[in-house]
Amino acid sequence: MENNSTQLNIQQPTHEVTIFAEPIFNVGGLQITNSLLTSWLALLVIVAISLAIRLKIQKIPNKLQNIFELVLEGAMGLVDQVTNDRKITDKIFPIVFSLFMFILVNNWLGLLPFVGSVGFNVLEEGHTVFVPLFRSGTADINMTLALSIMIVIASNIFGILTIGVWKIFNKYVNLKALGDIFTKVKHDKSIVIVSPISFFVGVLELLGEFAKVASLSFRLFGNVFAGEVLLASMGAIFLYVLPGPFLFLEVFVGLIQALIFSLLASVYFTIAAQDHSEHEEEHSEKQLASV
């Protein structure tokens, strides 16, 4: 009986949707996961599309160029709505648009029929486990975390380049607010209470940067991974027709998530490029003027 069950296990490999990307092979100590393979595939697709556009670019656009121009113009309009400044849009658009395309292609590649279904069997603890060769790139926290860290760091660098190191430093470690206690206390006694609060707000801002990384990465990962689980579950209930509507839903979710991630990135870039202390000073000046 035991033999029979072992045989049964070997004949019918189990496939559990894991929360992490499964390793496929090793290159010099680096485990190449199925998600990394898919993101390489996404990279290839994007390079191919870009090359096709570059080679067929012409003043009177063809179909592909038309679509791409439409997407490009629409995306610029969206980023413009966030930044409200064409100069900032021009600077951040390449990175935001690349982010959108990379996430979108990765999300959609994860929905293709061969992703999750083409793979090989591995013997793990006496069980034969099916390991898919491809898994959506964004269904791996390493990918989303990498992108989020990169965006948060890039937004701060952008802030430094736009408004200066001192202002960005003061945003997190508000030495200026602490200094104001000594310089402005004669004119305004309330500064003794306000300045430490401002300093603490700066510390919160610093924590907020970590929160940004967490929220960006887990939102994308969670949505895409949940989509995979949902599709797998629907397929397990009834393989035919039933997953169809959910597949459409996932196409939509993939687009929305790519949009949210890139728009939030543009929001972070815009916030980093704004000088809050100037706004506050202007605000206080206006208040004084109104008094």
């Binding site: 990307a21 990918m143 990498a146």
Partner: peptide
């Protein structure tokens, strides 16, 4: 893996 993904994004 994170660095590999960052490089991927860079190439994209």
């Amino acid at each position: 893996l994170m660095i590999a993904q960052m490089i991927n994004f860079g190439l994209v």
